[in-house]
Amino acid sequence: MTKQINVLTTTDIHGFIANMGEQPALAFEGLKEKYPHSLLMDSGDFFVGNPLTTFFCDQMTVSPLADYANAIGFDVMVPGNHDFDHGINYLKEQVKHLNADYVCCNAFSEEDELLFPPFAIKEINGIKVGVIGLVTSRMSMISDFPVTRGVIVKTALPELQKQVAVLRDQVDLILVGYHGGIERDLATHNEINYATGEDETFKLVSQTPGIDGFSCGHQHRVNHGQIGQTLIVQCGYRGNYYGHLTFEFDDYNKITQRKEEVVASETLPVKARSFYDEQEYQEWLSEELDLSQLVSFLQEKFARTNLGIFINLQGKTRKQVIDSFTIPYGVRIYHLTKSEYTTFSQQPWTLKEEHSPNDAQDFVVLTNSYDVPEYRLTEQFVDNIFDEYSYYLKQRG
């Protein structure tokens, strides 16, 4: 008799669970009921990623996102790089309140102990399923040092291979939840990203035999396909898509058919639900933010020799500061000639810090303004300046 299981995946929800059914992620409640014999997993960047999640961290010990995860019915969850943004202790506190297993095989303490179990084993419709968690190897490149203090993220490939070898004889199906992206086109296998080690789906799958399903994320892209016999899904951002892997088994629990798809969550009914007090959140947004350390924070974060800082803010409240940093590139670095710099620096800046020798002929500046010649752009950053600055203030009491 043929047996079937459904694997449902999400990633990069980033805490977008606005009340009153305004966010697509709220459509996931009831998803497991739609698909019988299912396992629901998330591939990271769940707890952090917008002002609402900063409010949760600032005002509450336990984020309402833990209640949301339990209401949705996640079975297994994996950390993303941003889930560490408020420190490992904050993340561990949230995990304590999850019904889901929280797994990651390559995140260790400074004492070389796993921060979370490397995998979970679930039984679905008589099929034993092993789920391995994995976070991008390049946390050190994309997270500030104070955030990852106490966390050592090891190279993904050998840690994954180790756990696949452990699970192979224990389960009928091996799944991986990876918070990292795809570096090659799934159809042509041509490179689409530089090989930085941040996004390694193709490398991980092609060099690790025995993986049946692989859910990735991190890049906020939508993809699906196969690498060999391994099904791959990548499900966008903010819950706008979910992955669906279907596996059929014979009487000996051997896979006979497999299929993958990515589905728009707008096809699901949204269930309005209140996870937090909206009035309290709006009052928090309208409070003035201490801006006295913003320049020193930016100097520490973007340590450069002779870096000038030029920031314009819409006002002093949290909401006004949030709105001052355009998504996705909140701040950028430009290299200007002397004449360009003279014109630029004379604008009416809210925050201004000049750092250049008197005889300088060229100038490097950090700004949130787009009123700069694009041909002088040297670097741009997707960092959430408001969120990181709030954490910076909190750490300093």
Rank of each mutant, 00 (worst) to 15 (best):
F302L: 07
F302W: 07
I311Y: 06
P348D: 09
Q346S: 12
F310W: 02
Y252V: 02
R273D: 04
A264Q: 14
S265P: 10
I322P: 00
Y281R: 03
S339D: 14
W284R: 05
A272D: 12
T337E: 12
F249D: 01
L291V: 02
L336V: 07
T350D: 09
K271R: 15
Q347N: 08
Y329H: 14
S292W: 03
K319D: 13
N253Y: 03
F249G: 04
Y276G: 09
T326V: 14
I333W: 05
G308H: 01
Q346T: 10
L289G: 05
T267M: 14
S265D: 12
S274G: 04
D277H: 13
F297E: 05
S274I: 13
Q293I: 00
I322L: 12
A264H: 15
D323Y: 08
E300M: 05
Q299C: 06
R332F: 01
W349T: 04
R304A: 06
N253I: 03
T256P: 08
F249K: 03
T317D: 05
K338A: 15
T256G: 02
I309G: 02
D250V: 04
K271A: 14
L285G: 06
Q282S: 08
Q257A: 14
V262Y: 05
T267E: 15
A272W: 04
P348H: 06
F344R: 02
T326K: 13
K301V: 05
W284N: 07
H335R: 12
K259H: 15
L285P: 07
F325W: 11
L268R: 11
V263A: 03
G308P: 01
W284E: 07
Y252P: 00
A272Q: 14
Q346E: 12
W349N: 04
F325G: 12
L336C: 06
A272V: 08
R332K: 15
N312A: 03
V263H: 07
H335I: 00
E283I: 03
L307W: 02
L336M: 14
N306S: 06
W284S: 07
V263F: 01
G330Y: 10
L307R: 02
N253L: 11
Y329P: 11
H335P: 00
K271E: 11
N312Y: 01
E288G: 03
I309N: 00
G330F: 10
A264D: 15
I311N: 02
Y329E: 09
T267V: 14
V270H: 11
Q314E: 08
S296K: 07
S274M: 10
S296Q: 09
D290Y: 04
R304F: 11
I309F: 01
I327M: 10
N253R: 14
Y252G: 02
T326E: 15
R304P: 00
V321R: 10
V263M: 14
W349A: 02
